[in-house]
Design a protein around this nucleic acid. Structure first.
Lengths: 350, 350
DNA sequence: AAATCTGTTGCACCCGGTTGCAAACCGAGG
DNA sequence: CCTCGGTTTGCAACCGGGTGCAACAGATTT
């Protein structure tokens, strides 16, 4: 009985009820339904109650595609994130998601696996959903696309990244330079003398700022400049860099890594391949304070980025009605140095 | 001159060109524009070329909200992921994203920070975007919602989770039970005798399967059953569990943890707090083979989940035209045991 | 009772695409 | 030159909601 099966199938995938269905049941016009679901629309309480009742009976919820089409803007926030392996990124993503879904927004995520440059075509694709806003998490945005966003009125949040020199947008950052400075003071005061710095991706602004603060403060204190290696923010590269650093005859007594991920990798190499006691033979300092930094086998001294506050700030900007697309604003939120055993406050003289 | 500024502003946020704009420029009807951008539509090559040219001149790209509205289905894939701190999850997310964006789909991500039960209302929200499909990554789906998806024709992929007993959907899993068995054989043959098992979340199917395979195979081999602790798949809990395990007078000589995250945590505790040499005094085995498992300070012996293959399979199902919503299918893809130093093939008798 | 005002309702059209259908087109065969 | 068949095109309706506007109701005023 193919007819019966057809019926069954039809029954199975019947699509969701529409506002006209609700209107018919409630005996009102479909605009009334629309108004019942619109905050502050011109509708009487009695009417609204009647509509809501019918809607509940049918399990009706307004189709967000249709709504977005008429309003010209969806409640989708595009998020471009590179390298989720980095806990800093994945944690930020979770924080953003929690706050934004609470406010009725959804995350349209694009992750470029270990590639910090967004492929233009891929991200352009996102824009076709008429995003409410855009967050760049550890990702660079081609100027052409940024311009495109601005033109279409899509505000951009640069998370832990500066706004590009020519573009517009809102940037929320950790005090990268100041953090570098504090770490320089901390190490010098602790009696460490032969310092090293492991840079992240050479173009990364955050890495450059941390380095600038670090070396500048060292110079101010009259300490000798650090040896430098590039870890690229990637674990494998960082491990190689750590090996090069530690194999030198004049081995450093402290390494400041431009992020935690590289610091953890350096500790791993120092302990396992060089038999060093981290915190005694060698101090390691990171930047970020990812959850793993507090694990007992790392106990990483690190500059804590104010991640939650940064997420709050980013969300506040995005949800701000008339978020000024044509604005260019940068915010830096305070963090703080967390001292653990990987780099004690006083060098153990021996 | 307020008028000029107004013009400027208007200029700044002028919305994207529509198909009618393109039609006007090209001197054709707007349906022609639509057809030019539709694979296999009835349109002559000359016409298509003319339209595409005009479209490029204007920078036109079809509005995906509108398209989805008429077709009744968006090209959005809902992904519900718990606990991105778990590298297994974030890695899977990256793999899915890479494959799906290549196929022109986008990910609508919902992450419930450390909460493996999807909040019903939140996920219901996702459905309002007329998803093409849904992926559950380490997340449970309330039956009511699953039913809702099925009714509306949204196929569900259960990633490393079984399909709920009453529901429909496609499940792609690692050989959890078989992996547990192999690990049991590996440890017994290696000469380990006092075994422990650290479970994940008590209700988690994957944890239960791994445990079942492990204990059953131990029994088959005549080995004594393992001591058992619960690590809940969460680092903090796993560390506490490891402390309890290792503090026992009759300390075990090998721990099998239901996932890598907990195994790494156990290694951290064993080394740092108990001064044990992992791989010598204590063997630790994980499940998953996350990137960190190969770090030199862990060198974790673990059962590698076929993550890439699983992602391929999931995507293939989702992209399959007429993906049968009313089907119930489960696939298990082969993994393999990766032996590293945390649990050597032969116990070092001492 | 008529006039006025405020608050509510429905009509109709819009958002930006897709698509069934009929008209227009084009070349080939009679 | 006309007819026939197949392709190509435009028209108009539609997807599901949002919203300006006019009609209308009910309360208040005069």
């Amino acid at each position: 009985m193919p007819a019966a099966r057809d019926d069954l199938k039809h029954e199975l995938v019947r699509s969701a009820p529409t506002s006209r269905d609700v209107a018919r049941i409630a005996g009102v016009s479909h605009s009334a339904v629309s108004r019942a679901f619109t905050e502050g629309a011109s509708i009487s309480p009695r009417m609204r109650a009647k509509v809501i009742e019918a809607a509940n009976a049918l399990g009706y919820r307004p189709n967000l595609l249709a709504r977005s089409l008429t309003t010209g803007r969806s409640k989708l926030i595009g998020v471009a994130a590179a390298n989720l392996e980095n806990n800093f990124v994945s944690h930020a993503l979770e924080l953003l998601c929690a706050r934004l879904t609470d406010a009725g927004y959804q995350l349209l995520v694009h992750t470029a696996y270990r590639d910090s440059d967004v492929k233009e075509s891929q991200l352009e694709e996102l824009l076709r959903y008429k995003l409410h806003g855009m967050v760049l998490l550890t990702m660079r945005l081609p100027d052409k696309l940024a311009e495109c966003c601005t033109r279409e009125g899509v505000p951009i949040v640069y998370f832990n990244r500066p706004v590009s020199p020519t573009g517009l947008g809102f940037s929320v950052q950790a005090p990268n330079e100041e953090g570098g400075r504090q770490i320089a003071r901390f190490l010098v005061e602790g009696g460490f003398r032969r310092l090293a710095f492991m840079a992240g991706h050479p173009d990364a602004y955050s890495s450059r700022q941390r380095e600038a603060g670090f070396t500048d403060e060292l110079a101010r204190l009259g300490a000798s400049p650090p040896i430098r290696e590039i870890g690229d923010f990637v674990v494998a590269t960082a491990m190689t860099a750590a090996r090069r650093l530690l194999a030198r005859p004049d081995r450093c007594d402290a390494i400041f890594c431009a992020n935690d991920q590289m610091a953890l990798a350096s500790i791993a190499v120092a302990q396992s391949e060089f038999g060093l006691k981290v915190g005694k033979d060698l101090a390691v300092v990171g930047f970020g304070d990812v959850p793993m930094a507090s694990w007992p086998n790392y106990a990483l001294t690190t500059y804590a980025m104010p991640l939650a506050a940064m997420a709050d700030e980013a969300v506040a900007f995005l949800l701000n009605e008339r978020s000024p697309v044509s604005e260019r604003r940068q915010v830096i939120l305070p963090g703080k140095l967390i001292v653990r055993e990987s780099a004690p406050a006083r060098r153990d003289v021996r």
